[in-house]
């Protein structure tokens, strides 16, 4: 079975700022470190009264989702889903809950509700009415997978028509000593990237041509999965830059981007400027 799909949305929030495949906003006053609590009004005019209740990683995931979805024109809830890959998952909320266990009045129900790494994807599903098969896949940071392969499988199997593929982490300083040594350091401790992919059938509307096309190919020979000292965000941030039209060196003209794993490579190419 040929597995292919289109990327129709891209959103991000990381130390460089936030935005989508067209626009990048930088942090106020040129700050280079992501804050550990976000203010929704910085990202969107649509109301989100309870954004403050979300734990850090859920906030990051929802912001990236918001960025990736804001330019879409049609909605469909029961065929749409979201998946997230995360390294530290709910570790920050776990520590907050542990601290609350000994506090006067007792443990915090709110904190406990976020002590599952899947709560971040639940928040995305609730806000954007995504009723398809959600997935939360904890993963080590040094592997290049960023959720696209898993999302591609879902849409190609027709378990969902669209899939928002996220990779997200929000790791406070106090949690760092609790990560394995090879998980510490790297590009960023607070980030989220979201890529909206759509199944290979023709687009429903004339305008949803997509930003890029994606297909998977088997590698001719088995090679070791490419590892990087950077966090998972590294590959995702490079893909975002590619989709914005610049490679990591800021040069244009590169037409394809590869995400490699042991036996396969995901090949992403810019969409031609045609309308179906």
């Amino acid at each position: 079975m040929t597995e292919s799909a289109r990327i129709t949305g891209c959103g991000f929030i990381d130390p460089t700022g936030w935005g989508d495949h067209l626009v990048q906003n930088t942090w106020p006053a040129g700050a280079t470190v992501c804050p550990d609590r976000l203010a929704w009004r910085l990202f969107s005019e649509s109301p989100f009264d309870r954004f403050g209740r979300l734990d850090m990683v859920s906030q990051y995931a929802v912001v990236a989702a918001e960025m990736s979805l804001r330019s879409r024109t049609d909605t469909s809830d029961d065929e749409e889903t979201a998946i997230v890959l995360t390294t530290a998952g709910s570790l920050a909320a776990d520590l907050e809950f542990l601290a609350s266990m000994g506090a006067p009045g007792g443990a915090s129900p709110t904190a406990f509700s976020y002590t599952l790494p899947s709560t971040a994807i639940a928040e995305v599903a609730i806000r954007y009415h995504m009723k398809g098969p959600s997935l939360c896949l904890p993963k080590p940071p040094h592997l290049p997978e960023i959720g696209l392969r898993e999302g591609l499988r879902l849409v190609c199997r027709q378990e969902a028509r669209r899939c928002l593929c996220l990779v997200a982490d929000a790791i406070p300083t106090c949690a760092m000593p609790l990560l394995p040594a090879d998980h510490r350091g790297g590009l960023a401790d607070h980030y989220a990237y979201a890529f909206l992919i759509e199944g290979g059938s023709p687009p429903r509307t004339a305008v949803s041509t997509g930003i890029a096309d994606m297909r998977v190919e088997a590698r001719q020979q088995v090679i070791r999965a490419e590892t990087s000292p950077h966090r998972a965000g590294g590959v995702a941030s490079q893909l975002c830059r590619f989709l914005r039209g610049a490679d990591s060196h800021g040069q244009r003209g590169i037409e394809s981007f590869e995400v490699s794993s042991t036996r396969e490579v995901l090949i992403i190419t810019k969409a031609a400027d045609t309308i179906s």
């Binding site: 639940a122 009723k131 398809g132 098969p133």
Partner: peptide
């Protein structure tokens, strides 16, 4: 198999 999300509440 099949999986869905209620998309209503976190717990």
């Amino acid at each position: 198999w099949a999986a869905t999300n209620d998309a209503t509440h976190i717990t």
